[in-house]
Write a protein that binds this DNA or RNA. Sequence first.
DNA 1: CCTACCGATCGGTAGG
DNA 2: CCTACCGATCGGTAGG
Lengths: 194, 194
Amino acid sequence: MEITSDRKTQIRMAAQNMFRSKGYSATSVRDLAKEVGIEAASLYNHISSKEDILREICFHIADAFFQAIEKSEAEGGSATKRMERAIENHIEVIVSHIDASSVFFHEWKHLSEPQLSEFKQLRRKYESRFIQILEDGVHEGRFRDMDLRMTSFTIFSAMNATYDLYKPSGKIGPKAISKHIADIIIQGIHQHKS
Amino acid sequence: MEITSDRKTQIRMAAQNMFRSKGYSATSVRDLAKEVGIEAASLYNHISSKEDILREICFHIADAFFQAIEKSEAEGGSATKRMERAIENHIEVIVSHIDASSVFFHEWKHLSEPQLSEFKQLRRKYESRFIQILEDGVHEGRFRDMDLRMTSFTIFSAMNATYDLYKPSGKIGPKAISKHIADIIIQGIHQHKS
DNA sequence: CCTACCGATCGGTAGG
DNA sequence: CCTACCGATCGGTAGG
């Protein structure tokens, strides 16, 4: 019945939670060790450095986002349909890794090179997938012809705040959140029939 | 005292910039002093603590947001018109205090009590002003009848990412940003004529 | 996984 | 605004 007694996993879970609530810099390895129930020095049998944990968290979530967009596009369909799925799957990733995604969004800047550049590059690549769908939508005459970089930015902003809106114990489920946000965004970017 | 208040401003500007780029916890008072060009101990002739600076930054921006919403509502008009102005003025605050507003959004959690609670309360009050406009819009039959807390959340998310999109040296001006975001949001929440 | 410990740095104070 | 300095804590290592 143990969710996981694997120490490494346990450390990562604690780190995700503390990095989110206190921030990476304000979380000491001693805080972390205490939460796990061992001495600080013992952490180093499982990790090589504090930043190592941050790196794992950030790149693991990056992976999940890429899998999500692959899945969104795999089924094909109109740009509208693909954008709806992209939003839904993106939010699904956030909701199912609620602490880790918050760390992904706010603590990545504490990565050092070369991981920092690699991280930024992955993010740009991911954003370009959304911009591509927007372009398709404009060409199909479904979406308004706007500054697509700004539009994708607006979409990401709305989606990424989910980690702040969703409470695992709350009444609002992940599907309700993604549907609500997708609703506003899709209607917001759609071409009017006139 | 001229020198003192000059220095104080200089310290605050440096703090806004460094708290934004490195985060509050990762910025030491020695980093700050170096940037200002004095010794760390000398900072304490102008500030009473590191957190003191953070407190000033956060509450100063809170003030600016309240002035913005007052101004938005003062002219009256339809809910649509007032929401457009609220979005525009909110983004205007972010753009004209670009570093400080980023600190406001991400570093407030390092405030200690009772300032922490006071800060959260101010934020809730500010959000309720937006929700009120949304309610008016629904009653006027202009806005769709949705979960307004979630809708206001989506609006804030889209607006607050401006600090990441706007570069003082870039080609995109503040007006272009606020117009773009307001555009998508207003169309996104509007009631369809059917 | 522990005890014992490292040098570096932290926010801040005393006294001039 | 400085020099000199405080105790506390930092990330991490040695050795068992």
